[in-house]
Each structure stands twice: as structure tokens, then as C-alpha cells.
Amino acid sequence: MEIILALSIGALAGSGIWLILRSRTYQVLIGLSLLSYAVNLFIFSMGRLRTDAPPILEKGVPNTLAHYTDPVPQALVLTAIVITFAMTALFLVVLLVARGLTRNDHVDGRES
């Protein structure tokens, strides 16, 4: 599971970075989104990977981390998802405005 997760984070981050460095605004937007997926998975993995372990206390189960997964990264990931989603939407609006004003989707507003 670790290898699959690491590979997917790597693939997402790699393609995200490649797209950010491209010259079209839409590619940059998709790159930022992919990068944020990679980051979200990464935050999630920082709570250590566990299967079948709930993040919430249950009755009759001892209060130690051996029986639970770390709830903090999950809470962080929720916040991060919401914030990146909002920021991506905002970036999309700016992208459309730039497209309208410059009649061009190059990040510099003109073909070089």
C-alpha cells in the first residue's frame, strides 16, 4: 500500500509541476489542481497508513494510538481541500478575465 500511495503522490506531483511550467493558463490551473491532490494525499499519509482503524474514540476500546488512526491529518486534509478548492475556483475566474482582456490564453497575455 505504501508503494502504491507513494507512486500516486509522485505521479500527481510530477505531472502537476510539469503542467505548472507550461505556457497556457488552463494547463497551469490543472497543474495546480493536480499538485493540490498530491499534497492532500501527502498530508493524509503523514498520519501513518492504517487500515481498519477509526479516527474517533469508541466505547470499550483502549484510548491508545495502537487502536486508532491519527485524526489530526484527516482534519487538516479537510481544511486543505476546502481552501485549495476555493482558491482554484478563484484562479479560474482570473484566468477567464485574463482570457477576455488579452484575447489569448498565454500566461504572459501574448505569444512570445
Binding site: 505548472i20 493558463t25 497551469v28 495546480l32 482558491m87 478563484l90 484562479f91 482570473v94 484566468l95 478575465v97 485574463a98 482582456l101 488579452t102 500566461v107 504572459d108 497575455g109
Partner: peptide, 9 residues
């Protein structure tokens, strides 16, 4: 808008 786009990215 162009400068803003760079700034946001």
C-alpha cells in the same frame, strides 16, 4: 490582470 495571474499562481 496579467500581474495578478502570476501573483496568484
Amino acid at each position: 490582470v496579467k500581474a495578478g495571474l502570476h501573483y496568484i499562481a
